[in-house]
Write a protein that binds this DNA or RNA. Structure first.
Lengths: 104, 104
DNA sequence: CCCTGATGCAACCGTGGGGTTGCACAGGAG
DNA sequence: CTCCTGTGCAACCCCACGGTTGCATCAGGG
């Protein structure tokens, strides 16, 4: 199958968002906490978390007056395995093309 | 390792670009040929191919007056394996958090 | 040689998305 | 009760990016 939801890619494509994801993968944190660590406003963080949540990449949990977020690896792993598999298939065709190029 | 592969993600994030990539993964094609198949101009295709090439995801070969492009799976597979691995690590932490949430 | 079709380059356009600021509201800590 | 701090919502800004059009160029085929 070659239909990985580009939505997931879009979620991972942004540098800041990736940092956020990696950070909360290392240890859960609130939006405010993340905003203190990264050079962007809390609102920016919130938006990133929303995108990541929509992509099923983060799990959020209200802890008192805070909302703690943590990265969910399941989706990422699944996506990763898909990519790996897809890439395998491509390389077969690539070999053929390169061969043809060299041969004539 | 959680190296920022956001460059590769950015290349994969766009829907049209992904279609192009999948298409030339199935079989090599020129920009003009792709432009005929997809609902975008040749120039748009060319730009996508440039982005993909910059990400090391396509291999281009001049064949007479045409330039044939084909998808390279190697990078994609490597990226996929990275994602899988990273995701694994996250899920460990996630388990801890969820446990704490349920426990109190 | 001449016509056709593929590529290359450049200018231009519109939208989306990342980022910000401001403000109102809620819930602990003292 | 009263601060302090974390969240939520909304309006707004700006630039990168996907896409287009136009034109010049180059390589094969008849």
């Amino acid at each position: 199958m070659s239909a990985p939801p580009d939505a997931a890619f879009a979620a991972l494509a942004d540098g800041t968002r990736w940092k956020v994801l990696v950070r909360i993968g290392r240890e859960p944190a609130s939006a405010s906490a993340l905003a203190r660590e990264l050079p962007v406003s809390r609102q920016a963080i919130v938006k990133h978390l929303e995108v990541l949540a929509a992509a099923g990449l983060v799990f959020s949990q209200r802890r008192g007056r805070e909302v703690v977020h943590v990265a969910v690896g399941e989706r990422l792993s699944a996506l990763g395995r898909d990519l790996d598999r897809i890439g395998q298939g491509w390389d077969d065709r690539l070999a053929v093309l390169k061969e043809a190029a060299e041969g004539g």
